[in-house]
């Protein structure tokens, strides 16, 4: 069963990630009173990009983007997607926190070799934004790990299944709210879209990507969305007992994230960090204090 999940969960992440990419375009189009592209448009785009002859700036340019996508798949292996996580006993949530960084870091290294200032500005913005949302995010994660007394995602999910899901229980409701407030920043959608701002810095880190590179970067973007949302579902919404329920829960969270995306304009990176360090941090901090003092 575990072996099966090794293959199944990356495939599920890939499919759902791409579905989310297509759905987000469709969703945005409908909010803007357009028809929008077909749901499978990202597949067509990726196929097109995959067969285009692009340019390479060097070995690191290739390796970085491969590393980025591979590490995103590895993060998925730590995630119980309505079943058991294939890599459940290899470092737990702490390893996930670290592995989640490898995605942006791979893109950053690869983009660095492209020798393009647009890319560098994008990466600088990405890292600043990450520092912005990591403050509340770490508080949320620490509150959860302290509350349940474990660093394993699987055990957190199991503990929630015994009692109520975290977002519906008393001290952790603060963490849940804070997570919802930072979710758009973690997914990289508006108002926190400043990293890949197409109009200012020519889509930032992806400015030099064409062809297969862009295809891989697009898939990685889909997986990032998948990971951000599935972390929420697992850690705060009690996970699920089978993949279908898990997917439905993800869909609800996704709809929330993209409703925000459609409703807000883009923030400057300082404004974004200022926001992230104000309300979400405050709420997450209250949650953490409550967990540390009251406990379970």
């Amino acid at each position: 069963m575990r072996i099966l999940w090794f293959v199944l969960s990356p495939l599920m992440a890939l499919a759902v990630g791409l579905f989310f990419l297509g759905l987000s375009r469709r969703f945005m189009a409908r909010i803007q009173w357009r028809v929008g592209p077909p749901l499978y448009q990202p597949l067509i785009d990726i196929l097109r990009q995959f067969t285009q002859k692009s340019v390479s700036h060097g070995p690191l340019f290739d390796l970085g983007v491969v590393l980025s996508l591979a590490s995103s798949f590895i993060v998925v292996l730590f995630m119980p997607l309505g079943g058991t996580a294939p890599l459940s006993s290899s470092g737990g949530l702490l390893a996930v926190l670290y592995l989640m960084l490898l995605g942006p870091l791979g893109i950053a290294l690869s983009g660095g070799e492209a020798a393009n200032p647009n890319v560098s500005i994008g990466i600088s913005r990405k890292l600043i934004l990450a520092v912005g949302y990591e403050v509340p995010f770490l508080m949320i994660v620490l509150a959860l790990m302290t509350y349940y007394g474990t660093i394993s995602i699987g055990e957190i999910v199991a503990a929630q299944r015994e009692s109520a899901s975290a977002i519906a229980s008393f001290p952790l409701v603060f963490s849940g709210i804070a997570y919802l407030l930072i979710l758009p920043a973690m997914l990289g959608v508006r108002p926190f879209e400043v990293v890949g701002a197409a109009q200012e810095i020519s889509s930032g880190p992806a400015a030099e990507y064409g062809g297969p590179y862009l295809a891989l970067a697009t898939i990685q973007h889909g997986l990032t969305m998948f990971i951000g949302i599935s972390l929420f579902v697992n850690l705060l919404w009690g996970g699920a007992s089978n993949p279908v329920v898990f997917f439905l829960k993800m869909l609800v969270v996704f709809a929330f994230g993209f409703w925000v995306n459609a409703a807000f304009p883009r923030l400057r990176v300082e404004q974004a960090v200022r926001y992230l360090w104000r309300w979400p941090t405050l709420i997450a901090f209250v949650g953490l204090i409550l967990v540390a003092t009251i406990g379970r």
Binding site: Q32, R34, P37, S202, S203, A207
Partner: peptide, 22 residues
């Protein structure tokens, strides 16, 4: 490309850099 004619229906979207376009 916006709501009036919506070229995205046909997969036609603007991209930021030449590298990503065809």
């Amino acid at each position: 490309i916006t709501s009036r004619w919506d070229a995205e229906r046909f997969g036609v979207v603007p991209t930021a850099t030449a590298r990503q376009a065809n």
